[in-house]
Design a protein around this nucleic acid. Sequence first.
DNA 1: GCGACAG
DNA 2: ATCTTGTCGC
Length: 242
Amino acid sequence: MASKRQPLHEWTIEPESAIALQKLLAPRIVCCDQTGEISHIAGVDIGFEEGGETTRAVIVVMRWPSLEIVERVLHRTPTRMPYIPGLLSFRELPAALEAFEQLSITPDLLMVDGMGIAHPRRLGIAAHLGLWLDIPAIGVGKSRLCGRNDEVPEARGSWVPLTHRNETIGAVLRTREQVKPLYISIGHRISLERSIHWVMQCLTRYKLPEPTRQADRLASRRTAETRCPEGDAAPEQDTLPF
DNA sequence: GCGACAG
DNA sequence: ATCTTGTCGC
């Protein structure tokens, strides 16, 4: 029976098949620089509502080097799959891809909340998304999925390699002093060195680089209403919708 | 066999 | 990821 095939990103897949697919796709990840002129960097993050029933995919596009937000997309959709360590992309990619379809600007670089190749089968969500869209991507994780690393020096900008099975799969980077480091890894079409470089270039006063931080704020509905008593800078203002 | 385990 | 209060520090 020749039924109309649904978009590939609407899969719902068994863990066993998902793992097989990762092993098939991982070898296609490009780990060298293929970035051209970079004028737009996008931050990608996924959040949840209603105890996980609804998925919120957010993409924030910023102009480089001003880092001003030029476009934002918030896409809400029913959650299709549960969270299984190692299979995160199958739970979050569908929503992210649907959000991408609503973007009018095609970013030159993606910064994704999660791992790139610093994954058991070298295909974390950042690598999976970068490969699918064929856009340079960097994995920006807040905690470790696999691998080991030495202590990271306290100085901002210092980093140590994250290794797994005798391979360097990423870097544990100190983006702020006195704060837990970030787990940076190649997503697609960019080297680890340049990945670290770009993350550092997008840092302001926070732990997370701006693209990811802004996407995270919106995905977790932590927008401009967060009050701060006084003193420092005024609460961040959101110019665009939401 | 036991622990670890992105978001 | 999300649920959640107060609390420590610049």
